[in-house]
Simulated assay, not measured.
Amino acid sequence: MSEDQAWGKPDLASRLTEDHHQSLRLWLRMLSCSMKIENEIRSRLRARFGITLPRFDLMAQLERHPQGLRMGELSKRMMVTGGNVTGIASQLEREGLVRRTADPRDGRAFGISLTPAGRRAFGDMARVHEQWVIELLQDVPDEDKADLMALLTRMKGHLDARQEAVPDGADQSPI
Rank of each mutant, 00 (worst) to 15 (best):
W7E: 08
G8I: 11
K9Q: 14
L12M: 09
A13I: 04
H20W: 14
Q22F: 10
S23Q: 04
M30D: 03
L31P: 01
S32D: 14
S32W: 01
K36S: 12
L45R: 02
A47D: 15
L58K: 00
A60W: 04
E63P: 01
R64K: 14
R64W: 04
R64F: 02
Q67L: 11
Q67K: 10
L74D: 00
L74W: 01
K76L: 14
M78Y: 07
N84K: 13
T86E: 05
S90A: 13
S90T: 08
E93A: 05
R94C: 06
G96T: 04
V98R: 00
V98Y: 00
R105W: 05
D106S: 11
G111E: 03
T115H: 03
A117S: 14
G118M: 00
R119M: 06
R120Q: 12
F122Y: 11
F122I: 06
M125I: 01
V128F: 01
E135A: 11
L136Q: 03
L137N: 07
D142A: 15
D144F: 03
D144N: 10
K145F: 08
D147N: 09
D147Y: 07
A150M: 13
T153I: 08
R154V: 05
D160P: 02
R162M: 10
G169T: 07
G169S: 11
A170L: 12
A170S: 13
S173T: 15
I175W: 12
